[in-house]
C-alpha cells in the first residue's frame, strides 16, 4: 500500500511531461527552442546507442563524470574530515584556521578554473580539483559543527574511562559527529555534481563526460541531446542522494 502510494508521488512529474508533449505537438512550444519529450527521448536513445561524438556512448560519459565527481568528493572527504574533527575539538585550531576557511569558501569553484588549468593542465585532474573545492567546505563545516554538537559529558566520561586522543577521535567524536558528517557528504556530492558540467568545460582528454557531451551537442545544434544530457545529470544526482540516504538510515539506526 505504502509502495503504491510512494510511486504515486511521481504522477505529477509524468503529468507535466504529458502536457509538455501536447503543447509541443500542437506547435505552441517551438521545437527549435524546446524540443518535445518524444524528440528528447529519441535524442537520448541516440546518445545511448550511437553516442556523441559517434562511438562515445552515454554509459561512457556517465562513468567518466561519476569518476571525476567521486574522486573529487573522496579527496575532499579524506582531507576535510580529519581537519574538521581537529578544528571541532581544538578551539585554538579553529580560531587559527577559520579566517582562512571563511575567506576561501566564498570563492565559487568556477573561479578556480583558470588556476586549475595552470596547475593541473587540461584533463581529469583539473575537473576533480574543481569538484574537490566544491565538496571540501560543506564536509569541513558540517564536521566541525558535528563535533561541536557532541555532549561535552560524553567526552569527559570517555576520558575518565581511559580514552586517549586516538580512541576519543575514532570512537567518540567521529561517530558522534556522523549524522552531521553524512549531511555534509550529501551536500558535497550535490554541489560536486552541480559543478561537474562546468568543471568539464576545462576540457576532457578522454572524450568522456556528461558536461563535455552537452557541449558537443551544443556545437552540433542538437537541443534534444542537450536536454537529454541535462536530464541524465538530474537523474544521476537524484539517485546518488537516494543511495546516501539509504546508507545513512543503515548506519544511523541508533537515532
Amino acid at each position: 500500500m505504502l509502495r503504491i502510494y510512494r510511486s504515486l508521488r511521481y504522477l505529477p512529474v509524468f503529468g507535466v511531461i504529458v502536457i509538455w508533449q501536447i503543447l509541443s505537438s500542437s506547435g505552441i512550444i517551438p521545437g527549435n527552442r524546446l524540443p518535445s519529450p518524444v524528440t528528447i527521448l529519441h535524442g537520448f536513445t541516440e546518445l545511448a546507442s550511437e553516442g556523441l561524438p559517434p562511438g562515445y556512448t552515454l554509459t561512457g560519459h556517465c562513468l567518466g563524470s561519476l569518476k571525476r565527481v567521486l574522486s573529487g568528493a573522496a579527496i575532499a572527504l579524506v582531507t576535510a574530515l580529519p581537519l574538521g574533527m581537529m578544528m571541532g575539538y581544538w578551539a585554538r585550531a579553529r580560531d587559527f584556521l577559520t579566517p582562512f576557511v571563511e575567506m576561501i569558501r566564498p570563492i565559487p569553484p568556477l573561479a578556480w578554473v583558470p588556476i586549475a588549468i595552470l596547475w593541473f593542465g587540461i584533463g581529469d585532474k583539473s575537473a576533480s580539483f574543481i569538484i574537490f573545492l566544491g565538496a571540501f567546505f560543506p564536509i569541513l563545516l558540517n564536521t566541525i559543527g558535528g563535533v561541536l554538537s557532541i555532549n561535552k559529558r560524553f567526552i569527559e566520561s570517555s576520558i575518565i574511562l581511559g580514552a586517549k586522543k586516538g580512541a576519543l577521535f575514532m570512537k567518540v567524536l567521529m561517530p558522534g559527529a556522523m549524522p552531521s558528517i553524512i549531511t555534509g557528504i550529501r551536500i558535497a556530492l550535490g554541489i560536486g555534481w552541480m559543478t561537474l558540467v562546468a568543471a568539464e568545460f576545462t576540457g576532457v582528454k578522454s572524450g568522456y563526460g556528461l558536461g563535455y557531451m552537452i557541449m558537443t551537442a551544443r556545437d552540433i545544434q542538437r537541443p534534444d541531446q542537450i536536454i537529454a544530457g541535462m536530464a541524465v545529470i538530474g537523474v544521476i544526482g537524484y539517485t546518488m542522494d537516494l543511495v546516501i540516504r539509504k546508507i545513512e538510515d543503515r548506519i544511523l539506526r541508533w537515532r
Binding site: R153, E156, S157, I160
Partner: peptide, 17 residues
Amino acid sequence: PVREIGYIFQEPTLLPW
C-alpha cells in the same frame, strides 16, 4: 582524570550509537 576514580554524571553518558 584516572580510571581509579569513576564518575556518574547527572545526565546519563551512554553513547547513543
